[in-house]
Nucleic acid binder design. Structure first.
Lengths: 184, 184
DNA sequence: ACTTTACAGGACACCGTGTCTCGTTTTATC
DNA sequence: GATAAAACGAGACACGGTGTCCTGTAAAGT
């Protein structure tokens, strides 16, 4: 994003301001809910000028996408080999604020193609690739298309996350794993 | 919604205005995309006063939810017994404006719990019940929870609809049907 | 006739957005 | 140390959609 090479002239970007903004955005999400968060509110909460926000991000969604990738990178270091454990770890991420934020990001991506592309590239794509690998490593059902399996597994997760008719929890991880194990 | 019994005094609700509003909303969705539709715009396009809109609907999402239920009721009369055909019919609905509208409604439901409840009750719930029935009629996999199967089937549909990494088409209907047939 | 309600049209304050300007602070370069 | 460059906090501004209110008119029942 920012240019790291070449001579940097002028005052460098404040890392303090960046962190304060990301933390303020998550804090406001927790307090007011994703849809009620505004860029103006984030700036005030972070004690920063609004121009500083607009200089580095275009929308609140971009702010929260960056906050989420930072947060996911912290919590999801080792990818386990076991499918059920992998799903449990992934589903555990959707507890608390993070679940609300990713749902909000997916919602906002419906009206912002640039955000949709980044969401796919930085959050959803990597998770899909990881699940695909775990499935292939674990002796996949012979004739089944791995991409379809990924769609159905993460599809049920997103479906529950967005429609909220059932929880995304360890029980879901267990049931999905059992079902996939019974495909001839 | 409106009271049908009891004495109705005063000027009755204009059915012309209602239809004009629903048609204008869908037309604007097609022209400008769901997120760019506004209540003000709908009123102007329909040639109606804004107060008339606010009298019968709270948000643009409620307008479009009603437009969708009308539209779905028209197009989805006979529920076929064959799973693949059922899925093909359902997926065909997501072509064109309707797909964009339901994605927009799901997105908006993330910030409007009342809308989320109506969306579940009037659009998603009935479709879930229908799929569940088709699965049960077609000799379901013995030990598998039908609800989980519904989650995974419609989950993949919604996942593709919202994330747009693959189309929701007849090929998906075929592949899902084939996969479900191979659960022991 | 009279009441009641819906109608079209427009006025209004409110709030978030995105851009702009101001004066300042922090860095690299000369 | 002086200078240029860029980021910083703070705030002003026009714009547009929202939701409410008001006006005068139209269509129904009593």
């Amino acid at each position: 994003m920012s240019c790291k090479v070449g001579r940097m002239v002028g005052r460098p970007r404040s890392e303090d301001a960046r962190r304060a903004i990301l933390r303020a955005a998550l804090r406001l999400c927790e307090r007011d809910g994703y849809p009620n968060v505004t860029l103006k509110g984030i700036a005030e909460e972070a004690g920063t000028g609004r121009q500083t926000l607009y200089r580095w991000w275009r929308t609140k969604a971009e702010v929260l996408l960056e906050a989420m990738t930072d947060l996911v990178a912290d919590r999801l270091a080792p990818p386990p080999e076991d499918l059920e454990e992998f799903l449990r770890d992934t589903f555990a991420l959707t507890d608390g604020v993070a679940g609300q934020v990713v749902a909000g990001l997916m919602a906002e991506a419906q009206s912002d193609e640039a955000l949709a592309a980044r969401l796919r590239a930085e959050l959803i794509g990597p998770r899909r690739a990881a699940l695909r690998q775990v499935i292939l490593d674990g002796g996949p059902p012979p004739g089944a298309d791995p991409e379809l399996l990924v769609d159905m597994v993460f599809g049920s997760m997103w479906y529950r996350l967005l429609n909220r008719h059932a929880p995304v929890d360890a029980a879901l991880a267990r049931d999905i794993t059992a079902l996939l194990g019974r495909i001839s």
